[in-house]
C-alpha cells in the first residue's frame, strides 16, 4: 500500500501542472484503499468507485462513553444524518462537487466528492437518547454514553491476603 502513496521527499516541491499518470495512480490508490478498509460492506465493491465512499474513523472506549471521530472536511453538517439502527451507528451524508463557474482545466483532483456512509457496530449497554454530535473544523465528533445496567451496584470485594 505504501508505495502507491507517493511521499513528499525532503525539500521536494510538486509541480502544479497536470500529469496524465497522476490521475491514474490516484484512482488505483483509491480503489485499493477502499477495498482494504471495507471489502464487502454495503454496496458491492465493483460499484464503489462510482461514488459512495466511507470516511476514516477513530474510536476510543473511555470510562463512561464511546468517542467516535470522523474527518469530514468540506461537508455541510446540516446534511449529515446520524442514526442508530439495529445496534449500529450509521453516518450518512453527501459532499457535493462544488460548481465552479469559469473553471477551465482541473489540474489536480484528490478530494472525494459524493455520498458517503459509515456504519459502526455499537455494544448493547449504551444510552441511545444521550448520543451527542458536533462538527468543528471538518471533524465530526460523536459521544455515545454508556448505560449502567439497571439495578447494578458497585460491590467492594475484599481480597484476602
Amino acid at each position: 500500500m505504501r508505495l502507491l502513496y507517493g511521499q513528499t521527499k525532503q525539500g521536494e516541491v510538486e509541480p502544479m501542472d497536470p500529469s496524465p499518470l497522476v490521475g491514474l495512480r490516484q484512482e488505483i490508490g483509491k480503489l485499493l484503499e477502499g477495498f482494504m478498509r471495507e471489502p464487502f460492506e454495503g454496496i458491492p465493491w465493483p460499484f464503489r468507485a462510482q461514488g459512495k465512499w466511507s470516511p476514516p474513523v477513530e474510536i476510543v472506549d473511555s470510562d463512561d462513553a464511546i468517542l467516535i471521530r470522523l474527518e469530514l472536511p468540506g461537508v455541510d453538517p446540516a446534511g449529515v444524518d446520524v442514526t442508530v439502527n439495529e445496534g449500529r451507528l450509521v453516518i450518512v451524508g453527501d459532499k457535493p462537487q462544488p460548481e465552479r463557474p469559469g473553471a477551465g482545466e482541473v489540474c489536480r483532483c484528490e478530494m472525494r466528492y459524493g455520498a458517503f456512509r459509515r456504519s459502526i457496530p455499537l455494544p448493547d449497554e449504551i444510552d441511545i437518547e444521550g448520543i451527542d454530535a458536533s462538527y468543528r473544523h471538518g471533524v465530526l465528533s460523536l459521544r455515545v454514553p454508556k448505560q449502567r445496567p439497571a439495578g447494578a451496584q458497585k460491590v467492594h470485594v475484599k481480597v484476602a491476603t
Binding site: 468540506g74 465552479r100 469559469g102 473553471a103 478530494m111
Partner: peptide
Amino acid sequence: CDIVERDDELLLLAD
C-alpha cells in the same frame, strides 16, 4: 488538494 485553473486565477483547495 484540488487545483482548478480558471481564466484569471488558480484555485487551490486543501483538506
